[in-house]
Design a protein around this nucleic acid. Structure first.
Lengths: 135, 135
DNA sequence: CTTTGTGCAAATTCTTTGCACCAAA
DNA sequence: TTTGGTGCAAAGAATTTGCACAAAG
């Protein structure tokens, strides 16, 4: 019983080889991957893995609160296994998504507290690397 | 030369019957519609309107800063003609998207200012109406 | 055995593209 | 009379669904 397995169980999710691999991927590579990215990488470890399972699993994670849907990318759904409140920055040039250690919970408008159960703060622009590269 | 026409011109967008109708729709109905919603409503006024034109136009608006892409809805792209900084709340039950008059510009982390050219604050939960309806 | 999970293929949905025709400058 | 806009049909990409088989309890 490894730690990822215990982690999943904590969310009421039964661990399977596939689910453990996907959650482990989310927790180790904090790149906020798309379903396709997860699939392309993990199929090398699990050759029988199907994209359907990746979609099913990511959805299951989000529904059970084990992962967060990140909607900062206009093209694809992205996922995050880090549950501590934080914000996201997306670079328009390289497309990278960087965690910003900033919890905006205190900024929630008073009138709306109580109605809100989830919030996201998305930032967009050009990252340091891309700025340097152009300079 | 009506006001919507002048409005578009101000963004360097040449007004056409279709473009004026779409911008007018965005400005009058602040429902943050999807491309499909815009299409389904406006085709009644402009029977020859095509979905391609709606997509082209909304994209043109966003590229020229005349409208904002709203990514709060996990399923579809949504659009907003209101340019004053504000936040968005989406109800999980009825799917409505409500404007929240809250500019989070001052919350932007100092380290990131200068890199950021766009930001969005998305709130999710259950709206007043849906809460009442259930009570 | 009985329920749950996986994976294939097909279907769906949303969005973009290629191209011909129409309209405006 | 040239550039730009529209709209149709087709293509493309992301995601979901239906179903049969495999695995786990």
């Amino acid at each position: 019983m490894d730690s990822t397995s215990i982690h999943l169980t904590g969310f009421g999710i039964r661990p399977s080889v596939q689910r453990i691999a996907i959650m482990r991927y989310l927790l180790k590579n904090k790149t906020h991957p798309t379903a396709d990215e997860v699939y392309e990488v993990l199929r090398r470890q699990i050759p029988t893995l199907s994209k359907t399972t990746v979609y099913n699993t990511l959805k299951l994670f989000v529904e059970n609160g084990a992962a967060v849907f990140v909607g900062i990318d206009e093209k694809n759904a992205r996922f995050d296994g880090v549950l501590e409140p934080h914000s996201h920055f997306r670079c328009r040039e390289c497309g990278c998504i960087i965690d910003v250690p900033m919890n905006v919970e205190n900024f929630l408008p008073k009138e709306f507290r109580g109605e809100i159960d989830e919030y996201h703060f998305y930032l967009k622009g050009t990252c340091e690397n891309c700025k340097k590269r152009r300079a």
